[in-house]
């Protein structure tokens, strides 16, 4: 009768799992900047209101997925006089080329701004060949 339990399970909002959040609550793509330096690609995404526990970064099948979970219930229940911000989780997926070394990716969260460093593989970096 375990199946029944699942049917009547009361969903406690606010503690929804990441996967459920993607399904049930709306998602918006955060604005990003991407630039390239000699050694890395740098990605900056605006995700205001989140601290680093709320953000998840995944590498799967050659794509980089960023997901940020907001306090959806709390945001929806406010009595708004003016609401300009879109209420939703942050979700965005990028295809990354195989020139990125996905074992050395670093990320940091600062003032609601997510910075990801995607280092290039050694083999794609320009190399100067010395003439003997």
């Amino acid at each position: 009768m375990d199946d029944n339990k699942e049917l009547v399970k009361v969903e406690e909002n606010g503690s929804q799992s990441w996967e459920k959040s993607i399904g049930n609550e709306c998602c918006y793509a955060p604005a990003v900047n991407i630039y390239e330096t000699a050694d890395d690609y740098m990605l900056t995404a605006d995700m205001p209101g989140l601290n680093k526990e709320d953000v998840k970064i995944n590498i799967e099948d050659g794509s980089l997925v960023i997901f940020g979970k907001i306090k959806f219930k709390e945001m929806m229940d406010k009595r708004y006089i003016l609401n300009e911000s879109a209420i939703g989780n942050y979700y965005r997926k990028f295809n990354i080329s195989d020139s990125i070394d996905d074992t050395r990716i670093e990320a940091k969260m600062e003032n609601g701004q997510l910075n990801i460093r995607l280092p290039k593989h050694e083999r794609v970096k320009p190399k100067i060949i010395e003439i003997k």
Binding site: A31, V32, N33, I34, Y35, E36, T37, Y41, T44, D46
Partner: peptide, 10 residues
Amino acid sequence: KDKNFHRTER
């Protein structure tokens, strides 16, 4: 300078 931008949405 010497940043090669691929995307600037911000």
